[in-house]
Structures are given as C-alpha cells and as structure tokens.
C-alpha cells in the first residue's frame, strides 16, 4: 500500500506523561500525526494506548506534557478542535432505543452538519447499511453497530479521526469491509487517522506508520514492513508478542549500524 507523503502535522503529543497512583501509564510519549496519514498505536493491554487516546480526546488530563491539534493547544481550544475531529470506539455505543437515523441526526446537529439528512443518507450508503435507516440501534449486530458508529464519526467530514479498535469483535468479512472503508475515508477526506487495534491484519493493511507502546513508552516505530525487517521477525504479530513478553526488542538495523566501523 503506498504511503502518502507526510504533510501538515494535525495532531502532536509532546512528552506526554500520565501517572495513575504513582504508576506511569504514559511516559514522555510523543507523536506526530500528519494529514493523510494512518498512524497505528500498538501494544499489549495496559501498554498505554487507550490512555494516550483518551488524553488526545481531552477525556483524561495528562500529568505533564503538551497536546496540540491543528497547531493549537488542545485544552484551551477544545471545542474548536473537536468540531474538526471525530471518534469511534468499539467500547462506546449510541443510545440503544433510538432509531439509527435519530441517533445520527442528533450528532449531525451537534456537529452543525449542513443538510444533515442528505449527509446521513450518503454515509449509510457508503457503509452499505441504508436499509438500517429506520432500525432500532440496540437491535443491530456488532458489524452493523460498528458501521453506524463510523457513520457518526464521519458526519462532520473530520480532518482528524480517532478510531479505537474499530474491528474488535467483527467477523473477517465485516472487518475487511471496515478496513476498506477506513482507507476510502483517508483518501476521500485526506484526514489524519489515529488507529488502535489488536488485529495485525488491520494494522498491516491500513496503517502507514506504527508506534509500539510498552509500559507507556514508545519502544519501536516505523512502517509495518520496516518494523518487521528491523526486528528480524517474520510477521508483525511476532513483533507484537516479543514486545508484549520481553518489553523490548532488538533493533537489528540499529545493531548493525553500531557494529559498522
């Protein structure tokens, strides 16, 4: 998959540290997300991915460090930034007893989407779920719910999109559709996407750049191919397991450079 040329930085974390009862969930974590880039955050459970994402959404305040989106400090320009961003997570839901169109209409109004009904119809068609328009949200399958959540996340044509495990609990067919949708969104909206997943197929197919987190620190980063090569592993999944179990990984490229005269 061709990587787009990195352009404007739309999200930046600088030395972000977040402590919970003296334990560092994030330790001087830095990140730059460019427009048009899909950046994957990887790590075992408790590595700090969710904390990082929550800080970037303003849901958790960092202990120290800075967060900037579109060149502006997040906390002091929160509303302005959130109007240009959106979020979808496998762990949130839309009110179950509302109809799909009702849920989407409410968020369309919150995001001040012009011609909301047309936009909703367009997105439902894009996700191939137009037939769910009048269905009760709580009666949808996991795959349908995920796609409705994605519709919600795309209502405002976000320039910055945060996706937290969008393919969690989906069957391979729907997961594949979701991955294709994410790539389509990126090319159509030219937005920056921050993506977390435990599904390595997702990561390989969707992400241009990866950051492996362990105990709140970035232990490795690069393109998926680059990371596999540098760690002398056969797959990204091997890299994931090594990092999750050992906490760090031998970067072969760096080692060769050190040995070279």
């Amino acid at each position: 998959m061709p990587s787009p040329i990195p352009s404007e930085v739309i999200l930046e974390a600088r030395d972000l540290t977040r402590e919970f009862d003296g334990v560092k969930a994030l330790d001087k974590f830095s990140l730059k997300l460019h427009r048009g880039q899909v950046l994957g955050l990887l790590g075992a459970n408790g590595a700090g991915k969710t904390t990082a994402m929550n800080c970037m959404l303003g849901l958790t305040l960092p202990t120290s460090g800075g967060l900037y989106a579109f060149g502006k400090e997040l906390q002091s320009h929160r509303i302005e930034i959130l109007r240009r961003a959106n979020f979808s997570s496998a762990y949130t839901a839309l009110p179950a007893n509302l109809l799909v169109w009702q849920n989407l209409l409410v968020f369309a109004k919150i995001y001040r989407v012009p011609k909301p009904k047309e936009r909703i119809a367009e997105l439902l068609e894009m996700m191939e779920i137009s037939h769910l328009h009048k269905r009760v949200t709580g009666q949808l399958s996991a795959g349908e719910s995920t796609r409705v959540n994605l519709c919600k996340a795309l209502l405002n044509k976000p320039e910055l999109l945060l996706l937290d495990e969008p393919t969690a609990s989906l069957d391979p067919d729907i997961a594949d559709k979701v991955r294709k949708i994410v790539l389509r969104i990126r090319s159509e909206l030219n937005c920056g996407i921050l993506y977390t997943s435990h599904n390595m197929k997702d990561i390989e197919e969707v992400c241009d750049h990866l950051m492996f987190l362990h105990k709140g620190k970035v232990v490795m980063e690069g393109t998926p191919k680059d990371i596999v090569e540098r760690s002398s592993s056969s797959t990204l999944e091997d890299v994931f397991i090594k990092i999750a179990r050992d906490g760090e990984i031998v970067d072969e490229t760096a080692k060769k450079e050190e040995v070279a005269p």
Partner: peptide, 12 residues
C-alpha cells in the same frame, strides 16, 4: 447507553 464518551468528545 454508553453514549457519554460520544457526547464528551463532541463539540459540546
């Protein structure tokens, strides 16, 4: 309804 996060990450 687990909708609180959707509201808190929206421009509200």
């Amino acid at each position: 309804t687990r909708n609180l996060l959707n509201v808190f990450v929206a421009p509200v």
